[in-house]
Design a protein around this nucleic acid. Structure first.
Lengths: 357, 357
DNA sequence: TATAATCCGGTAAGCGCTTACCGGTAAGCG
DNA sequence: CGCTTACCGGTAAGCGCTTACCGGATTATA
């Protein structure tokens, strides 16, 4: 008996129950696989669900279960742009998000994402709103001040990426220091370069600070001279990297033999700027990145860099958040290992791949 | 009088109301800016909210308002891989998603994303679950069969990207045909190439079919000979593109003077494969892409391609979905214009930028 | 000063779902 | 064959929020 259709309002389990001739409790039980409904009951319900194309309302379920099965993910969207339409800065972020998603899917969670512009105001408010729609939050680098994070963390479980744990929030990051050390050693010991420069990332990034410090220490240990300081301040973007090179060159500075960049994005901009000036990489100046973003291998020359297990980073972040949500515990600070990827921008010939010690 | 803290359970507007000494209705009104509460009342509520770090539960609001302020976005995650770790295929998708987000944020919506692997089963079930958590869905290319979309569309508002509208779902796409025509004309008329090839994308993609057809028609109109067919079948990935070239070359085929690729990803793989064989682009073979993905300009040589207004595409998709959600209407099929971006892979020298017809 | 017009703010219903609790029926037992 | 034990499945409460409705207090009007 084909119904004339029922596109009215939203349909609920009451509609399904009515159609199947059972109670709403039975519908719910069948849909959740709870209890032990008679085979016939189950069939009637399933049949009705199919006929009506019924889907349970997530909000109602969440309210009733106290679990939304949603993780909020917050990150920054790129700032200033040098190359028109440049937006590669989010490559890195997207790979991590993919990792989060992988972890999330294993638990039936979905990702609720919200990006924030560099000069958006009311960031905290936006994040708070997100918090209300999710069971927990994962914050990418530099989204909020430490106090902001702390405050947020007592309304909802929070995991930060590449940050620092607070009393209430957890953190996951990569072993930046060992990556930089591997790079410096490769450049100084394997290639014999004696002068190094470091184009840094945003000054307020914990990751960047760690990398800079490791750079200074390891270079000193290896006996190389270094160039750093305000003139070398980038901001994780290709534009920032290009800008450093141009400023340096315009000021008539002589570049060091090898330049480490805070991340691949920056290296991309640096290589680009160098090419503009007719400076050859790696013959005149060797360049390295950090992250091993997917495009790194397609640059000319292919970029020697440090691979962060970005996808695992994301997956790990989710797992930690999940255990916090369901159990309440969670390791405060998790560090993942990195790997040296030797390609050609450092002066090596082939595509050999070493390993971060 | 500093409370000893109240980390117990979740806090609700009852807690806030209690603390502020008002009713829950007042709390709700203040938080929503409804009614005209006395200044004092408003202050007390705000104060209590601040002290408790209170955030309204999204699920409860959604249930009560009948609006979740969430859009579901579904897309495919990359398939086979040639270059280790290749995952650039999602570049394109991510840019569109960024556009969706921009549109969404204007309305206070957030994006609930869910990617699907090429060989995941129960795709329909996963999407249905997503549907329950969102007010509407945006589906990227080739997520579901036409009937699948139709069925989905009568449980929740649906907008497809680069697809075809169904009775119940809306669609947004770019003007593929005119892009291909511009490319063919540039190659044949401006450069004088007489033989063209087309490395196609997934055979089941409407976009791809349109592009192929436009290619054939325009090439015929321009009087060029063409190479197509099974040997030229790619799949939108760099791996697919590289594979086509290798197979062709291994079979001893002579390549046409210019090759159009179904998308930038494919072009990337093609250029890579050509370089492996020592074939020069554009001297020996001219290559063009489609999409103008961010990295296109950083390839060697920089890629001549068709720019799709990807971000606008996403934003537009959201706007249409939004109007469907709130009003019920919505244009069934929206077509956005594309633009020819002339760089060097076609044989042009500088970075001049023409325009699609 | 009495009465009507305004304002605020409280009470309670209801959004769609899950599930504790309980009653009815069928099966098991002496 | 009557009573206990299971087993199903229905009723109803409650998740946290919004808001219609209404009563009390305040201010305006006569």
């Amino acid at each position: 008996m084909p119904e004339p259709k029922k596109p009215k309002g939203t349909l609920t389990i009451y509609d399904v129950a009515g159609r199947a001739g059972v109670s709403i409790a039975s519908v719910s039980r069948v849909l959740n696989g709870q209890g032990s409904p008679r085979a016939e009951t189950r069939e009637r319900v399933l049949q009705a669900v199919r006929e009506l194309s019924f889907v349970r309302d997530g909000a109602a379920r969440a309210l009733s279960n106290g679990l939304k099965e949603v993780v909020g993910v917050v990150f920054r969207r790129g700032g200033e742009q040098l190359f028109e339409g440049e937006d590669e800065s989010f490559l890195f972020i997207d790979v991590i998000n993919r990792g989060i998603e992988v972890g999330a899917q294993r638990r039936g969670f979905d990702l609720l994402i919200s990006s924030v512009g560099f000069n958006d105001d009311n960031v905290a408010a936006r994040i708070a709103a997100l918090a209300g729609k999710a069971d927990g939050l994962i914050l990418h680098d530099r989204m909020l001040s430490t106090v902001g994070i702390a405050r947020l963390a007592d309304m909802v479980p929070v995991v930060t990426l590449a940050g620092t744990p607070t009393p209430a929030s957890l953190n996951v990051r990569c072993d930046n220091a060992s990556g930089i050390r591997a790079l410096v050693r490769h450049l100084v010991i394997d290639h014999g370069y004696r002068s190094l420069g470091y184009v840094s990332g945003r000054a307020d990034s914990p990751d960047n600070r760690t990398r800079l410090r490791a750079f200074e220490n390891e270079a000193a240990a290896a006996g190389a001279t270094i160039d750093t300081g305000p003139a070398w301040q980038g901001n994780y973007s290709a534009a920032g990297g290009a800008n450093v090179i141009e400023t340096l060159l315009d000021a008539g500075k002589k570049l060091p033999r090898a330049i480490l960049c805070a991340n691949d994005q920056t290296a991309l901009g640096v290589i680009h700027a160098l090419a503009q000036r007719g400076i050859k990489v790696p013959e005149d100046v060797a360049i390295t990145g950090f992250d091993d973003v997917p495009v790194a291998r397609h640059l000319h020359p292919p970029l020697t860099t440090i691979r962060q297990p970005m996808q695992e980073l994301g997956a790990k972040a989710f797992d930690i958040l999940y255990s916090r949500i369901s159990a309440g515990g969670g390791k405060a600070d998790t560090v993942l290992p990195v790997e040296l990827i030797v390609r050609e921008s450092c002066g090596c010939a082939g595509g050999a791949t070493g390993e971060a010690k």
